[in-house]
Design a protein around this nucleic acid. Structure first.
Length: 574
RNA sequence: CGGGCCGUAGCGCAGCUUGGUAGCGCGACUGGUUUGGGACCAGUAGGUCGGAGGUUCGAAUCCUCUCGGCCCGACCA
């Protein structure tokens, strides 16, 4: 391929709207061009990258017996109503909805559980046809509340989504493990540094899930991990050993004391020097939303710990929780913000508490009276006994739940997510097969996603320097470029053409930079574009000598024409 | 959806406070000279200043509304 024939337009300056390295470099090197907020055009070079990554995905999934299909982008409302997700996705605002000529409501697919379940259900009647695993690589549409970071969080993006269908849980477990293995091979092959972490299932639902995280500062997720035990989890899901707190001792009589303007744990610690935060219980009011109602929920947490809202949503089986407004708090508790507590809490407010408060005695809490707190509160005696759940936000430095060693924290970009859905969708949609026992049985499903446009962006996030992109070989748009430097020197052009042909014959994915640019411009361009190996044919062409540059590290060596092919292959690790 | 900010040539920006002929750099095009780190010289093209309304003799500039975009937060496969 000749670069003179490929549409390439690099920019001299950084685009104004790019913040993180991958967005900045992909835009500046001309790989992506913004069409609208969160909507990008992939230029020829980017499309080569996407296709190469997608090919790796295909090979590894096919090896596990998955079938590639293509599902429709436009989906009818009815399917989403059948699974019960239409209202939630519309309410969350991420669904692109539209109406056809007749007024029927449709949506642009944000994900394809419904369509795939419907499809497989229509094709599979008997357990004898199971297991089945189908996937597609296709655009997804989500009207993100805040698209950002280029390809990292777009509104239209490319995703591989696979769905497994099994007769029972054992089959699902096996399908899940096969996909997990395939995912590891995929991310190993494409040269990114990743970690598999335990994850919350979120809007997709289901019993268990794991995320594949590319470690990078720009990551939108925080993960906690332990080198000792291998434990790793998204902070939304993570647990840790409960940090110690001073014991409360034998129950004492409750006292109510005036605490004017003392509203936060920090202020309470200052006001009561003898009471560490670990002996306090804070009470936070949330507005929880379900499909058919909203309620105020009081959540108690030990004073030195924080509440994990994802765990709270799960504990309540709610769609969402938001901190209650000041007005709602006053209305519900009768006290100003900062004085809520379990003591004299109105009965209509649900009361939950974190496990860290179980069996704790003589707590310091609010009592729903402005300007007062209570000392020596004992739950069940001085206040309702709350329902105890794990609602604690785990933090770096706390003990690993397995090894007890301090957890470390890192940022991660979610490039893959695998779920055991179980029968959530199949049961809701009546997707059944005839089981061996002669009874209609819902499929045990798994679903598996890979961000096909996001993964290359995350690779750039990990592999770049101050000059530009440093593509990992397996997903680079080309493995090697051969460039002559002076278009007026026939011997340079001739030699470049010869080397280009030889590399092609040697199986190297090579391009020829035959553009009429000055040498400096070519050097800069290739540093920016980031092809792994670069061969420059310059002023020593007449002596049969050229320069070979390895983009990673920018090491440049001179060599003779006869050695070039061998050296390029070696640089590519072959 | 809250808070902050920005829309002026393909890209990056100045001009706006204090209203008076729309500018700079890069890029593009033409010609010439160049050819090892985004070359140089000369010339050319390209903007209803996001849109609508208003104030004014006169609006990129002031006012109102609106659309689009960016950042922080909330939220999110």
């Amino acid at each position: 391929m000749r670069l003179s024939q490929i549409l390439i337009q690099t920019l001299r300056e950084d685009p104004a709207d790019a913040e993180i390295p991958s967005h900045r470099l992909l835009a500046r090197a001309g790989f992506i061009v913004k069409t609208a907020a969160g909507v990008y055009t992939y230029s020829p070079l980017m499309w080569r990258v996407i296709k190469k990554f997608a090919q790796i995905v295909r090979e590894e999934l096919d090896r596990e017996g998955a079938n590639e299909v293509m599902l429709p982008i436009i989906q009818p409302k009815e399917l989403w109503q059948a699974s019960g997700r239409w209202d939630r996705y519309v309410a969350d605002g991420i669904m692109f909805t539209l109406k056809d000529r007749k007024g029927s409501e449709m949506c642009l697919g944000p994900t394809h559980e419904e369509v795939m379940t419907d499809f497989v259900s229509s094709q599979v009647n008997s357990y004898k046809q199971l297991p089945v695993n189908c996937y597609q690589i296709q655009d997804k549409f989500r009207d993100e509340i805040r698209p950002r970071f280029g390809l990292m969080r777009g509104r239209e993006f490319i995703m591989m989504d696979a769905y497994s269908f099994d007769a029972d849980q054992a089959g699902l477990d096996e399908a899940y493990q096969k996909m997990r293995n395939a995912y590891c091979r995929i991310f190993d092959r494409c040269g990114v540094d990743y970690t598999v972490v335990q994850a919350d299932s979120g809007a997709i639902g289901g019993a268990g899930s794991e995320e594949f995280m590319v470690i990078a500062d720009a990551g939108e997720d925080a993960i906690l991990f332990c080198r000792e035990s291998g434990y790793a989890a998204n902070v939304e899901k993570a647990t840790s050993r409960l940090p110690d707190a001073p014991p409360g001792g034998e129950p004492k009589p409750m006292e109510k004391l005036a605490t004017p303007d003392v509203k936060t744990v920090a202020q309470l610690e200052a006001f009561f020097p003898d009471w560490p935060a670990g002996r306090m219980a804070k009470t936070v009011l949330y507005k929880a939303t379900w499909a058919d109602e909203e309620k105020l929920v009081a959540v108690m947490q030990r004073g030195d710990l924080e509440i994990n809202e994802v765990k709270l949503v799960n504990a309540l089986d709610a769609l969402a929780v938001d901190l209650a407004s000041d007005e709602d708090i006053v209305k519900a508790t009768g006290a100003e913000v900062g004085f809520a507590g379990p003591v004299d809490l109105p009965d209509d407010v649900v009361l939950l508490a974190d496990e860290s408060l179980r069996d704790r005695t003589n707590l310091l809490c609010g009592c729903n009276e402005t300007g007062y707190h209570c000392l020596n509160v004992n739950l069940g005696r001085d206040a309702r006994m709350p329902e105890f759940r794990d609602l604690r936000l785990a933090k770096a430095g706390e003990g690993c739940p397995i090894s007890g060693k301090p957890l470390e924290e890192a940022r991660g970009i979610e490039v893959g997510h695998i779920f055991k859905l179980g029968t959530k969708y199949s049961a809701a949609m009546g997707a059944t097969f005839m089981a061996q026992n002669g009874k209609p049985t819902p499929f045990a499903m798994g679903c598996y996603g890979i961000g096909v446009s996001r993964t290359p962006a995350s690779a750039v996030e990990q592999h770049h320097d101050d000059k530009g992109i440093v593509w990992p070989v397996p997903i680079a748009p080309f493995e090697c470029v051969v460039a002559f430097l002076d278009k007026k020197r026939g011997e340079q052009i001739e030699l470049a053409e010869k080397i280009y042909a030889q590399l092609g014959e040697a199986g190297v994915e090579v391009c020829l930079d035959d553009r009429a640019m000055s040498p400096g411009a070519k050097f800069k361009d290739h540093e920016l574009i980031g092809l792994p190996v670069q061969v420059f044919v310059g002023r020593k062409a007449s002596e049969g000598r050229v320069e070979l540059l390895v983009r990673k590290g920018l090491a440049k060596v001179e060599c003779g024409v006869d050695e070039v092919v061998g050296k390029v292959l070696a640089a590519l690790g072959r």
